[in-house]
């Protein structure tokens, strides 16, 4: 298997990085906007990794944020409680990278453990079992006093920044994209298209389903770790069912099976939810209606319904943008 580097994609990422960095230095992009971009990039990892499970392999998972939670708690426990890292010490950055990867690996192990028994199930039943596992993971954090219980894990050093996040995010996309176009990825796609047929042509479906689950969990763990080191806190409520649904919405709004769609939706929906703050305020000022922030989510939900009604295959369908398309035509 030859590793594809997607030169056009990497060029776009580097360009985006440079532009934002320069605009930030010039104070055109302020800390708020940069923060939203950081969050969007973390959602890119979450959405693309869930897309690997849901969109590519066709396995409906509702517990994705549980894996992110494992990554967040493991990496933050290592960086905060074990190594007591600090961003001001230059060497600690490397240890931090190690902690994040450890978080991802821990999530992958959990993914593997959950994947094996669950993947006998199909469709909605699988969705429910993953939901159950996700909630059990959350409940476990809630009751583990070592990591703060319902108080959450506090005082996490702020290592995540635009640079670390964009590198992790670009790497995830490249690795997932490579995986999809490898023979393994073909096998995964065949499971989505027709599991029985895949089995008949000799594809070990369980193996590939578990593989998708494990990879997806790994990247979700990475995203969770980055999030914890961005907002300097990990709390059980951040990794519950409702949060998993948010990521699910992203991949459906973007188009199931389209990595491009997941990236666009991760940015689009994060910006939409923030943009509505301004939108509501302007609307209230312009019309004099007594509406406030509590209407923001009403509009968000309505937009979601409309997207699904009028473009139910999602923004991109299953298509990919040229930027991360396979280099050679098959």
């Amino acid at each position: 298997m030859k590793l594809q580097k997607f030169p056009r994609f990497l060029a776009v990422v580097i360009l985006f990085y440079a532009v934002i960095e320069i605009l930030f230095k010039l104070d055109v992009v302020n800390g708020y906007l940069l923060h939203i971009i950081n969050l969007s990039l973390i959602y890119v990892i979450l959405a693309t990794s869930l897309n690997l499970i849901n969109g590519i392999t066709g396995q409906f998972s509702l517990g994705h944020m549980g894996f992110a939670g494992v990554g967040a708690y493991v990496s933050a426990a290592l960086s905060t409680l074990v190594f007591k890292l600090s961003p001001s010490k230059p060497g600690d950055m490397l240890v931090f990278v190690g902690c994040i990867v450890a978080g991802g690996l821990a999530a992958a192990v959990v993914g593997l453990l959950i994947g094996f028994p669950s993947l006998r199930l199909k469709g909605d039943y699988l969705a429910i079992v993953t939901l159950g596992f996700g909630e059990i993971i959350r409940t476990a954090f809630n009751n583990l006093d070592v990591v703060g219980g319902p108080r959450g894990l506090l005082g996490i050093p702020k290592f995540s920044n635009f640079t670390t996040i964009i590198i992790a995010s670009a790497l995830s996309v490249v690795v997932i994209r490579n995986l999809i176009q490898s023979s393994h990825g073909r096998a995964m796609l065949s499971i989505r298209e027709n599991e029985v047929a895949a089995e008949l042509v000799g594809i070990d479906t369980t193996r590939y389903k578990v593989m998708a689950f494990t990879f997806g969990a790994f990247f979700a763990g990475i995203a969770g770790g980055l999030l914890a080191h961005l907002i300097q806190l990990a709390h059980p409520t951040q990794f519950g069912f409702i949060k998993s649904v948010e990521v699910l919405i992203m991949i459906y709004a973007g188009g199931v099976g389209s990595i491009t769609g997941s990236i666009l939706a991760a940015f689009g929906l994060t910006f939409l939810s923030e943009g509505l703050r301004l939108g509501i305020r302007s609307l209230a000022d312009a019309t004099g209606l007594p509406i406030g922030g509590e209407w923001r989510m009403v509009i968000y939900a309505l937009l979601l319904i409309f997207i699904m009604l009028f473009r139910n295959e999602g923004l991109m369908g299953t298509k990919e943008s040229k930027i991360i398309e396979l280099p050679e035509v098959e």
Binding site: V245, I249, A301, L304, M308
Partner: peptide, 15 residues
């Protein structure tokens, strides 16, 4: 596809 109505159901619930 079945899952688009599922997302719609989530949207209805949120709304």
């Amino acid at each position: 596809p079945k899952l688009s109505s599922l997302i719609t159901a989530i949207g209805v619930s949120m709304f």
